[in-house]
Amino acid sequence: MNRFRLSERGAERLSISVLLAPAVAVIVLLFLGGLASGFLRSLNYFPLIGLNDFNFDAYFSIFTDNGFLQSLVLTFHIAFTSTLIASILAVASALLLRPAFRGKRIVHFFFSLNLTIPHLVGAIGVLYLFQNSGLVSRIMTGLDLIQRPADFPAMVFDPWAIGIIIQYVWKEIPFIGVIVLAILLSVGEDYESVARSLGANRWQAFRQVTLPLIMPGVVSASVIVFAFTFGAFEIPYLLGRTFPAALPVLAYQSYTDVDLAARPQAMAMAMVIAFISTLLIMAYMKLSRVYIRE
Protein backbone atom coordinates (compact mmCIF):
# COMPACT_ATOMS: atom_id res chain seq x y z
CA MET A 1 0.00 0.00 0.00
CA ASN A 2 2.65 2.40 1.13
CA ARG A 3 4.94 1.41 -1.71
CA PHE A 4 2.09 1.81 -4.17
CA ARG A 5 1.42 5.34 -2.92
CA LEU A 6 5.05 6.27 -3.14
CA SER A 7 5.31 5.11 -6.69
CA GLU A 8 2.10 6.93 -7.50
CA ARG A 9 3.55 10.12 -6.10
CA GLY A 10 6.75 9.48 -7.99
CA ALA A 11 4.79 9.12 -11.20
CA GLU A 12 3.02 12.35 -10.48
CA ARG A 13 6.31 14.13 -9.94
CA LEU A 14 7.71 12.68 -13.11
CA SER A 15 4.75 13.80 -15.14
CA ILE A 16 4.97 17.31 -13.67
CA SER A 17 8.66 17.41 -14.58
CA VAL A 18 7.91 16.27 -18.10
CA LEU A 19 5.21 18.87 -18.48
CA LEU A 20 7.46 21.60 -17.18
CA ALA A 21 10.47 20.54 -19.22
CA PRO A 22 9.86 22.70 -22.32
CA ALA A 23 9.39 25.83 -20.27
CA VAL A 24 12.40 25.06 -18.12
CA ALA A 25 14.49 24.35 -21.21
CA VAL A 26 13.62 27.70 -22.73
CA ILE A 27 14.47 29.51 -19.50
CA VAL A 28 17.74 27.65 -19.06
CA LEU A 29 18.84 28.05 -22.66
CA LEU A 30 17.83 31.62 -23.20
CA PHE A 31 18.36 33.09 -19.81
CA LEU A 32 21.10 31.13 -18.12
CA GLY A 33 22.75 30.29 -21.44
CA GLY A 34 22.71 33.93 -22.46
CA LEU A 35 23.97 34.97 -19.06
CA ALA A 36 26.78 32.40 -19.16
CA SER A 37 27.92 33.28 -22.66
CA GLY A 38 27.71 36.98 -21.82
CA PHE A 39 29.77 36.35 -18.72
CA LEU A 40 32.42 34.41 -20.67
CA ARG A 41 32.63 37.18 -23.24
CA SER A 42 32.95 39.79 -20.51
CA LEU A 43 35.98 37.81 -19.35
CA ASN A 44 37.56 38.35 -22.75
CA TYR A 45 36.67 34.88 -24.05
CA PHE A 46 35.11 35.25 -27.48
CA PRO A 47 36.84 32.87 -29.92
CA LEU A 48 34.64 34.02 -32.81
CA ILE A 49 36.39 37.40 -32.87
CA GLY A 50 39.74 36.00 -31.85
CA LEU A 51 39.62 36.58 -28.11
CA ASN A 52 40.87 33.49 -26.31
CA ASP A 53 42.55 34.38 -23.05
CA PHE A 54 40.51 34.94 -19.87
CA ASN A 55 41.10 38.20 -18.02
CA PHE A 56 39.27 40.89 -16.08
CA ASP A 57 40.46 43.73 -18.32
CA ALA A 58 36.97 44.70 -19.36
CA TYR A 59 35.84 45.11 -15.76
CA PHE A 60 38.97 47.08 -14.88
CA SER A 61 38.51 49.38 -17.78
CA ILE A 62 34.83 50.12 -17.17
CA PHE A 63 35.23 50.69 -13.44
CA THR A 64 38.14 53.03 -13.96
CA ASP A 65 36.23 54.85 -16.66
CA ASN A 66 34.63 58.00 -15.34
CA GLY A 67 31.99 57.88 -18.05
CA PHE A 68 30.82 54.46 -16.90
CA LEU A 69 30.47 55.60 -13.31
CA GLN A 70 28.51 58.64 -14.42
CA SER A 71 26.23 56.39 -16.44
CA LEU A 72 25.75 54.14 -13.44
CA VAL A 73 24.71 57.05 -11.25
CA LEU A 74 22.40 58.39 -13.94
CA THR A 75 20.77 55.01 -14.46
CA PHE A 76 20.22 54.56 -10.77
CA HIS A 77 18.74 58.04 -10.59
CA ILE A 78 16.34 57.29 -13.46
CA ALA A 79 15.21 53.95 -12.05
CA PHE A 80 14.94 55.05 -8.45
CA THR A 81 13.19 58.35 -9.10
CA SER A 82 10.74 56.90 -11.62
CA THR A 83 9.88 53.99 -9.35
CA LEU A 84 9.44 56.16 -6.28
CA ILE A 85 7.27 58.78 -7.97
CA ALA A 86 5.23 56.19 -9.85
CA SER A 87 4.67 54.15 -6.67
CA ILE A 88 3.51 57.11 -4.62
CA LEU A 89 1.22 58.42 -7.33
CA ALA A 90 -0.07 54.91 -8.02
CA VAL A 91 -1.01 54.38 -4.36
CA ALA A 92 -2.65 57.79 -4.27
CA SER A 93 -4.68 57.13 -7.40
CA ALA A 94 -5.67 53.66 -6.21
CA LEU A 95 -6.97 55.23 -3.00
CA LEU A 96 -8.91 57.80 -5.02
CA LEU A 97 -10.36 55.15 -7.31
CA ARG A 98 -11.40 52.82 -4.51
CA PRO A 99 -14.70 54.24 -3.24
CA ALA A 100 -17.88 53.77 -5.24
CA PHE A 101 -18.75 56.75 -7.40
CA ARG A 102 -20.69 57.52 -10.53
CA GLY A 103 -18.91 56.52 -13.73
CA LYS A 104 -16.37 54.45 -11.82
CA ARG A 105 -16.08 51.89 -14.59
CA ILE A 106 -15.26 54.47 -17.24
CA VAL A 107 -12.66 56.10 -15.01
CA HIS A 108 -11.10 52.68 -14.34
CA PHE A 109 -11.02 52.00 -18.05
CA PHE A 110 -9.14 55.20 -18.80
CA PHE A 111 -6.87 54.66 -15.84
CA SER A 112 -5.70 51.29 -17.11
CA LEU A 113 -5.85 52.24 -20.78
CA ASN A 114 -2.19 53.17 -21.19
CA LEU A 115 -1.11 49.75 -19.95
CA THR A 116 -1.71 48.75 -23.55
CA ILE A 117 0.21 51.64 -25.13
CA PRO A 118 3.81 50.76 -26.02
CA HIS A 119 6.66 52.60 -24.31
CA LEU A 120 7.82 53.90 -27.66
CA VAL A 121 4.55 55.71 -28.22
CA GLY A 122 4.93 57.26 -24.80
CA ALA A 123 8.43 58.39 -25.68
CA ILE A 124 7.22 60.04 -28.86
CA GLY A 125 4.49 61.71 -26.85
CA VAL A 126 7.04 63.09 -24.41
CA LEU A 127 9.14 64.40 -27.31
CA TYR A 128 6.15 66.02 -28.90
CA LEU A 129 5.02 67.63 -25.65
CA PHE A 130 8.16 68.54 -23.75
CA GLN A 131 10.86 69.34 -26.29
CA ASN A 132 11.99 72.95 -26.45
CA SER A 133 9.98 73.17 -29.64
CA GLY A 134 7.24 70.97 -28.16
CA LEU A 135 3.60 71.66 -27.60
CA VAL A 136 3.89 72.65 -23.94
CA SER A 137 6.64 75.16 -24.60
CA ARG A 138 4.76 76.66 -27.54
CA ILE A 139 1.57 76.97 -25.49
CA MET A 140 3.52 78.62 -22.70
CA THR A 141 5.08 80.99 -25.21
CA GLY A 142 1.64 81.69 -26.61
CA LEU A 143 0.37 82.49 -23.12
CA ASP A 144 3.42 84.73 -22.60
CA LEU A 145 4.55 82.63 -19.67
CA ILE A 146 7.95 82.35 -21.32
CA GLN A 147 9.43 84.62 -24.00
CA ARG A 148 10.77 82.13 -26.50
CA PRO A 149 10.30 78.38 -26.83
CA ALA A 150 14.01 78.04 -26.09
CA ASP A 151 13.42 79.45 -22.61
CA PHE A 152 11.42 76.35 -21.75
CA PRO A 153 13.45 74.33 -19.25
CA ALA A 154 15.15 71.35 -20.84
CA MET A 155 13.16 68.22 -20.17
CA VAL A 156 14.38 66.11 -23.00
CA PHE A 157 18.07 65.28 -23.58
CA ASP A 158 18.58 67.01 -20.23
CA PRO A 159 21.08 66.12 -17.48
CA TRP A 160 18.35 65.20 -14.99
CA ALA A 161 16.61 62.83 -17.38
CA ILE A 162 13.29 64.52 -16.65
CA GLY A 163 11.71 63.44 -19.93
CA ILE A 164 12.69 59.83 -19.32
CA ILE A 165 11.29 59.91 -15.82
CA ILE A 166 8.05 61.53 -17.01
CA GLN A 167 7.62 58.80 -19.57
CA TYR A 168 8.29 56.00 -17.06
CA VAL A 169 6.04 57.52 -14.42
CA TRP A 170 3.23 57.98 -16.93
CA LYS A 171 3.53 54.40 -18.09
CA GLU A 172 4.04 52.72 -14.71
CA ILE A 173 1.41 54.47 -12.56
CA PRO A 174 -1.44 52.36 -13.93
CA PHE A 175 0.70 49.22 -13.73
CA ILE A 176 1.33 49.62 -10.00
CA GLY A 177 -2.03 51.31 -9.47
CA VAL A 178 -4.11 48.48 -10.88
CA ILE A 179 -2.32 45.98 -8.62
CA VAL A 180 -2.73 48.17 -5.54
CA LEU A 181 -6.38 48.86 -6.36
CA ALA A 182 -7.09 45.15 -6.63
CA ILE A 183 -5.53 44.60 -3.20
CA LEU A 184 -7.41 47.52 -1.68
CA LEU A 185 -10.71 46.23 -3.00
CA SER A 186 -10.10 42.71 -1.77
CA VAL A 187 -8.91 43.83 1.67
CA GLY A 188 -11.98 46.07 2.06
CA GLU A 189 -12.38 49.10 4.27
CA ASP A 190 -13.18 47.33 7.49
CA TYR A 191 -9.60 47.23 8.78
CA GLU A 192 -9.45 51.00 8.48
CA SER A 193 -12.83 51.26 10.16
CA VAL A 194 -11.47 49.23 13.07
CA ALA A 195 -8.46 51.53 13.29
CA ARG A 196 -10.59 54.68 13.18
CA SER A 197 -12.93 53.29 15.78
CA LEU A 198 -9.95 52.52 18.04
CA GLY A 199 -8.80 56.11 17.84
CA ALA A 200 -6.64 56.44 14.73
CA ASN A 201 -7.13 59.57 12.66
CA ARG A 202 -7.24 59.36 8.88
CA TRP A 203 -3.50 59.59 8.44
CA GLN A 204 -2.73 57.12 11.23
CA ALA A 205 -5.23 54.65 9.80
CA PHE A 206 -3.54 54.94 6.41
CA ARG A 207 -0.01 54.79 7.75
CA GLN A 208 -0.52 52.06 10.35
CA VAL A 209 -3.12 49.88 8.69
CA THR A 210 -3.77 50.46 5.00
CA LEU A 211 -0.17 50.92 3.95
CA PRO A 212 1.19 47.79 5.65
CA LEU A 213 -1.67 45.81 4.11
CA ILE A 214 -0.94 46.98 0.57
CA MET A 215 2.85 47.19 0.98
CA PRO A 216 3.62 43.64 -0.21
CA GLY A 217 1.77 44.42 -3.43
CA VAL A 218 3.41 47.80 -3.83
CA VAL A 219 6.82 46.21 -3.31
CA SER A 220 6.30 43.41 -5.81
CA ALA A 221 4.98 45.81 -8.44
CA SER A 222 7.63 48.45 -7.90
CA VAL A 223 10.45 45.91 -7.91
CA ILE A 224 9.36 44.95 -11.40
CA VAL A 225 9.23 48.60 -12.39
CA PHE A 226 12.67 49.24 -10.90
CA ALA A 227 14.25 46.29 -12.67
CA PHE A 228 12.66 47.33 -15.93
CA THR A 229 13.61 51.00 -15.75
CA PHE A 230 17.14 50.08 -14.68
CA GLY A 231 17.71 47.80 -17.63
CA ALA A 232 15.54 49.24 -20.40
CA PHE A 233 17.19 50.64 -23.46
CA GLU A 234 14.68 52.32 -25.73
CA ILE A 235 13.47 55.26 -23.62
CA PRO A 236 16.89 56.59 -22.53
CA TYR A 237 18.08 56.02 -26.09
CA LEU A 238 15.28 58.21 -27.46
CA LEU A 239 14.93 60.81 -24.72
CA GLY A 240 18.34 60.85 -23.04
CA ARG A 241 21.63 62.62 -23.56
CA THR A 242 24.41 60.86 -25.40
CA PHE A 243 26.80 61.63 -22.56
CA PRO A 244 26.45 60.46 -19.93
CA ALA A 245 24.06 57.87 -21.33
CA ALA A 246 22.10 55.37 -19.28
CA LEU A 247 23.94 52.07 -18.79
CA PRO A 248 21.91 50.02 -21.27
CA VAL A 249 22.56 52.69 -23.91
CA LEU A 250 26.25 52.76 -23.06
CA ALA A 251 26.42 48.97 -23.30
CA TYR A 252 24.74 49.10 -26.68
CA GLN A 253 27.10 51.79 -27.90
CA SER A 254 30.10 49.69 -26.89
CA TYR A 255 28.62 46.59 -28.44
CA THR A 256 28.05 48.28 -31.78
CA ASP A 257 31.44 50.01 -31.62
CA VAL A 258 33.58 49.37 -34.71
CA ASP A 259 36.39 48.42 -32.37
CA LEU A 260 35.80 44.73 -31.63
CA ALA A 261 37.88 45.07 -28.47
CA ALA A 262 35.01 47.02 -26.95
CA ARG A 263 32.80 43.92 -27.05
CA PRO A 264 34.02 42.47 -23.73
CA GLN A 265 33.42 45.86 -22.16
CA ALA A 266 29.83 45.89 -23.43
CA MET A 267 29.34 42.43 -21.95
CA ALA A 268 30.92 43.47 -18.67
CA MET A 269 28.48 46.37 -18.49
CA ALA A 270 25.55 44.07 -19.15
CA MET A 271 26.80 41.84 -16.34
CA VAL A 272 27.12 44.80 -14.05
CA ILE A 273 23.58 45.93 -14.89
CA ALA A 274 22.24 42.47 -14.12
CA PHE A 275 24.26 42.20 -10.93
CA ILE A 276 23.41 45.63 -9.61
CA SER A 277 19.72 45.38 -10.33
CA THR A 278 19.57 42.00 -8.59
CA LEU A 279 21.39 43.44 -5.61
CA LEU A 280 19.25 46.55 -5.44
CA ILE A 281 16.07 44.58 -5.71
CA MET A 282 17.13 42.31 -2.88
CA ALA A 283 18.05 45.26 -0.71
CA TYR A 284 14.79 47.00 -1.58
CA MET A 285 12.69 43.99 -0.67
CA LYS A 286 14.52 43.56 2.57
CA LEU A 287 14.11 47.22 3.47
CA SER A 288 10.42 47.25 2.71
CA ARG A 289 9.94 44.16 4.82
CA VAL A 290 11.54 45.94 7.74
CA TYR A 291 9.27 48.88 6.98
CA ILE A 292 6.17 46.71 7.09
CA ARG A 293 7.15 45.28 10.44
CA GLU A 294 7.64 48.74 11.86
Binding site: Y191, S193, V194, R196, S197
Partner: peptide
Protein backbone atom coordinates in the same frame (compact mmCIF):
# COMPACT_ATOMS: atom_id res chain seq x y z
CA UNK B 1 -15.05 62.11 13.99
CA UNK B 2 -15.07 58.37 14.70
CA UNK B 3 -11.75 58.48 16.54
CA UNK B 4 -13.13 61.09 18.93
CA UNK B 5 -16.52 59.56 19.67
CA UNK B 6 -15.41 57.09 22.29
CA UNK B 7 -17.57 54.44 20.64
CA UNK B 8 -15.51 51.41 19.72
CA UNK B 9 -16.84 48.77 17.37
CA UNK B 10 -15.74 45.14 17.41
CA UNK B 11 -16.38 43.53 14.04
CA UNK B 12 -17.98 40.19 13.44
CA UNK B 13 -14.89 38.74 11.75
CA UNK B 14 -12.44 40.02 14.41
CA UNK B 15 -10.19 41.86 11.89
Amino acid sequence: KPEERGAVMVFQNYL
